[in-house]
């Protein structure tokens, strides 16, 4: 009896599930393994809309390694403290800033949720793209309008290659560009 039930379920999955799965995949209804739109909650609700949008702080003020390293780098707390040791903040934000200051004083790093995740086996270099005058927004989207950061692009290989292929970008397209 049990075997029959299992058999029926498997058959159902194969007959209905699989074709719809393939349909979804091939028609861009489903992007498997990519995380476009991923918007996790952060331990401190830092707002790019406020800092980058309203206050117009340059991206590179916090993401210091963008021009020299593969990683843009998430700022260490001492960068936050450059301002937050002095400036006044809105009443409702005060507990969060206190949390930040506490962490800094206790030398305890904040564990941020990683938003942008490249597929495995890919090497990406921020410095190279910044050097080619790419704007942050071209990949990260309207970051200055994001109260909570989400993944704007799907960061899939097709997405990378589309841009690399444009003649005006004069970018390499060999496998070794990203995979090594």
């Amino acid at each position: 009896m049990l075997k029959k039930v299992i058999g029926a379920v498997v058959a159902l999955v194969l007959l209905v599930g699989l074709p719809s799965f393939i349909y979804a995949l091939t028609n861009n209804k489903l992007s498997i393994g990519y995380n476009k739109g991923y918007m996790p909650e952060q331990p401190i609700p830092y707002s790019h809309e406020l800092h980058a949008g309203q206050l117009k702080i340059d991206c590179k003020y916090c993401h210091t390694a963008t021009e020299v390293s593969r990683h843009a780098s998430v700022p260490s707390l001492n960068i936050c403290m450059n301002c937050h040791l002095n400036v006044n903040v809105r009443e409702e934000a005060r507990p969060q800033i206190e949390k930040l200051q506490q962490a800094y004083m206790n030398n305890e790093p904040i564990k941020w949720e990683k938003v942008h995740l490249l597929p495995d086996h890919v090497k990406f270099n921020h410095a190279a793209h910044v050097r080619a005058d790419k704007q942050c927004q071209e990949c990260h989207g309207p970051i200055e309008k994001m109260p909570i950061v989400y993944q704007h692009s799907d960061l899939s290989m097709g997405w990378c290659v589309n841009c690399h292929r444009k003649p005006e970008n004069n970018a390499p397209v060999g496998c070794d560009t990203c995979h090594y």
Binding site: P109, E113, L117
Partner: peptide, 19 residues
């Protein structure tokens, strides 16, 4: 997705740049 964390330094030593 697999949830991952980014843990930057609290006080980054001057000579260390990630990457």
């Amino acid at each position: 997705r697999p949830a991952q964390k980014i843990v930057p330094y609290a006080k980054r030593p001057e000579e260390i740049v990630p990457g």
